[in-house]
Design a protein around this nucleic acid. Sequence first.
DNA 1: GCCGCGGCGGCAACGGGTTGCCATGTATTG
DNA 2: CAATACATGGCAACCCGTTGCCGCCGCGGC
Lengths: 360, 360
Amino acid sequence: MPDHIRPPGQRVTIYDVALEADVSPSTVSRAFSRPSRVNSETAERIRQVAERLGYRTNPLARALTTSRTQMIALVIADITNPVYAEIVRGAQEVAADGEYTTVLIDAQESDRLERAAVERTMSTVDGIVLASSRMSDSAIRMVAKQRPVVVLNRALADVPCVVTDDSRGVRRAAEHLGELGHDHITYVAGPQASWPNGVRWRSLLEAGMELEIKVRQIGPFSPTLAGGERAAQELCARPATAVLAFNDQMAIGIIRGLNRMGVNVPGDVSVVGFDNILAADIVTPGLTTVAAPLYAEGSAATRHLLTMIEGARGHTGRPMVLPVRLVVRDSTAARNPSPGRARPAWVRQRPVPGPAAHLP
Amino acid sequence: MPDHIRPPGQRVTIYDVALEADVSPSTVSRAFSRPSRVNSETAERIRQVAERLGYRTNPLARALTTSRTQMIALVIADITNPVYAEIVRGAQEVAADGEYTTVLIDAQESDRLERAAVERTMSTVDGIVLASSRMSDSAIRMVAKQRPVVVLNRALADVPCVVTDDSRGVRRAAEHLGELGHDHITYVAGPQASWPNGVRWRSLLEAGMELEIKVRQIGPFSPTLAGGERAAQELCARPATAVLAFNDQMAIGIIRGLNRMGVNVPGDVSVVGFDNILAADIVTPGLTTVAAPLYAEGSAATRHLLTMIEGARGHTGRPMVLPVRLVVRDSTAARNPSPGRARPAWVRQRPVPGPAAHLP
DNA sequence: GCCGCGGCGGCAACGGGTTGCCATGTATTG
DNA sequence: CAATACATGGCAACCCGTTGCCGCCGCGGC
């Protein structure tokens, strides 16, 4: 039991330990921060005394001189989006291993909120991981000038980046749909401020070219269930047999919306999502989707950040690219065989315009 | 443009500002922290100079003397569980309003990890919200002795608590099932370390008493999809027509598991969950569940914490209780009529789709 | 004219570690 | 045995604000 009971809630300081161990405060400090700089027996004694007194080094005081807080910030676009859960896990794991604490910031899909939060936190952390930032490139560069930054899901010159191989993912999805007989794919766009959104569309454009599949885009819609349902409405106006959605939540929303309007998935329309969130596996039909290595994204970005913080001038020019894979479930199927028909059977909306226009 | 360009990455300090504004550093400090203590013109001038030089007060240095970091910790059991997303939102909203930054800690359902993280973070934050802590009561009290703490989803003497009215929620669920003709409810238990788990079971016991419904418990299982699927297996061994699961994820797992074994929900078995996560609405059949005011939980707990931090000796003895409501969807239905039989029809293992099975 | 008081600003002592530099003592080397 | 090297530990300055206390000044009251 401690023979010196801390009288009031006062914290134990190195001075207390120093007094008790009969050494100078600096020696106590070194015993913890640079053990090699002090005799091992002395260090051991100090550690014992510290233990007995319940000494805990004060991270703030330490930070004041070292300007290292052992904290990093992890900024995500929307904590409500399950995609980020695994990313956060990966990041926190690595951070904890390196004795870092993670400050999680939820930007709520808002450029403004994100900037404000980053601003407020910046001076307190040793580095920042921006996962799916909604800030402008220039704003990011601004931040990167003041603190080590790693950007996730966005490629940006002069700032270290980690991205997934979306281009390949889209390609695989297009191939898959092509094999099922689809010759036309509609991309349902997500937030314009989202970098991957642009990449996915452009990749689809490219893949369409090579595979001789026609593509088009509708949107943007909010990257949520509700957004997907709205997209479903628009899809009805301009029908398609194959849809690639910006993310799984939208894809699920689309399926629901279509179902409500009497359209069968995958019977009439095939739908592919992006991210492979947990829900993709539990909805009916199971969602075919492009899976990203979420955990790896978080851990890779964080690992990179830590090495930057720990001195390495970091930054390997090219962004780090992580592989993706296509998870095939039940939301995609062979194209509804309706030979001789230009449009899927379920289009009963409005009489086909065009040639009809010439009729009296 | 600033006429004094900071030469190296050096931060601007009050000393720089003092020099430039021709006052003492203490005056600069006061100009920001206690404006009333300094002449308003002087203060204005100082503020101008500070602005021009790009001065930003260093929160760490400030914290060192005031021992207020303007940060709070929010500890959640499992970031992968969507329930917490809204809670986090509520907490962060309130925290941000009060100029506090939130440090999110994911305990990964582990007592050990949780303690370690709290330990590590405690000295850096002004207070802590423990949402669904997996720590022991005594461990929590220990922490509460050192920092203001508010506990969410657990009642604990001597520590401020915010809980939901689970008892009422269970009661409502039992009534609902009773009205549908069920005279036996099986509770599928979640983590034993979870306080609500105990409450829910006891409440069901009580409700069963009053409503003359027989109840029994199986488990514990992990509060996840996989856990629910395992529970489904066990349910087959000892059949039931009505099931109340610890949470929605388990409930969904149970439904999947049962389906796989040819059991129809709600035709053969009615399932009720807890939490009303987003997925509850998108699965088929839609999940009947007890909804908690998640956002309100987070915000109420945090508001309480902030008032504690801000001096009020806080703590109103009794825990604060938030209301819940039963959301009825399609996973519950009238009991499968099989008069004169001790066990439901599906016990034969092989799917026998009764007439009711395909009704809307 | 003297005293008291309030407004304002400065001095200096913190808070709790960290670290450059020096002093001492011992081990190594020629 | 002298000269040099190294291992240890202490001193004191420093990081950047905050705050108790005091002094100065001008003003109003008696």
